[in-house]
């Protein structure tokens, strides 16, 4: 079965949105996970709570908050527009932001677990060999937490591909701009005679999700082999 141009468009858009969302939130996710795992500071629980909030809030609420903050009239949105000419509302970049926020807790949790499971004494050993802290992080900590980073990235990517509520609330359902695969599927179900199209998208979604899982499993296995020798 050949894909129709509309399907290709939805798939490519979904991959682009999820890809950018994960790419941009990854450094921040590592930083926040590191902060939560390694430091005890006043407000630790508050930061932890804020990070996890999107996990328990209805996505529609997240989308609405984003609309209020980042919409063209919103305080942050207006500032971004004035200073950088960046518009997030009703653009695919906005869809990426919505996905990133919703998937962020999953990413942070997985990375934090791997940081907490890491043998800190290896970092100490690296410092006695003359390595400054930044180099220790890049050459020892980061490779050792790579399996957790990978898991977090895949989880977040999958969550982004499935993102619906926050996206439709924040950036609406604009063909070619914000109509990702789940939104396209939803749209099909809302029009008469759209069930065939919806069915095809469902199959595509399952194939993509499954491929991502298999790829991550293979990667994780390769990483573990590297670590264990």
């Amino acid at each position: 079965m050949a894909l129709t141009p509309l399907e290709v468009e939805a798939i490519m858009l979904s991959l682009r949105v999820a890809g950018w969302a994960v790419l941009v939130s990854l450094p921040l996710g590592i930083a926040v996970a590191w902060l939560l795992a390694r430091y005890r500071f006043p407000g630790h629980s508050i930061v932890n709570g804020l990070v996890h909030l999107p996990l328990v809030l209805p996505p529609v609420v997240v989308g609405f908050v984003l609309l209020l903050l980042l919409g063209r009239q919103g305080p942050l949105g207006a500032w971004l527009d004035d200073w950088f000419g960046i518009t997030l509302a009703f653009t695919w970049q906005g869809a990426a932001v919505a996905s990133a926020v919703v998937s962020f807790p999953l990413m942070v949790r997985a990375i934090r677990l791997s940081i907490e499971g890491m043998d800190q004494r290896l970092e100490t050993a690296a410092r006695t060999l003359g390595a400054p802290p930044v180099w220790v992080f890049l050459s020892i900590s980061l490779p050792l937490m790579a399996p957790g980073v990978l898991t977090g990235t895949i989880l977040a990517f999958a969550r982004c591909l499935g993102e619906f509520g926050a996206t439709i609330t924040f950036v609406s359902n604009i063909p070619g701009e914000t109509r990702t695969l789940p939104l396209a599927l939803y749209t099909y179900t809302q029009v008469p005679g759209g069930l065939d199209g919806a069915f095809r998208l469902m199959v595509i979604a399952i194939v993509i999700a499954f491929a991502a899982l298999v790829a991550s499993e293979l990667l994780a296995r390769a990483l573990r082999r590297r670590l264990e020798g």
Binding site: D119, R121, L122, T124, A125, A126, T128, I140, P143, L144, R226, L227, E228, G229
Partner: peptide, 11 residues
């Protein structure tokens, strides 16, 4: 520093 447990970098 040579540690009791070696502490080689596994990766």
């Amino acid at each position: 520093y040579v540690f009791q447990d070696g502490r080689l970098f596994p990766h």
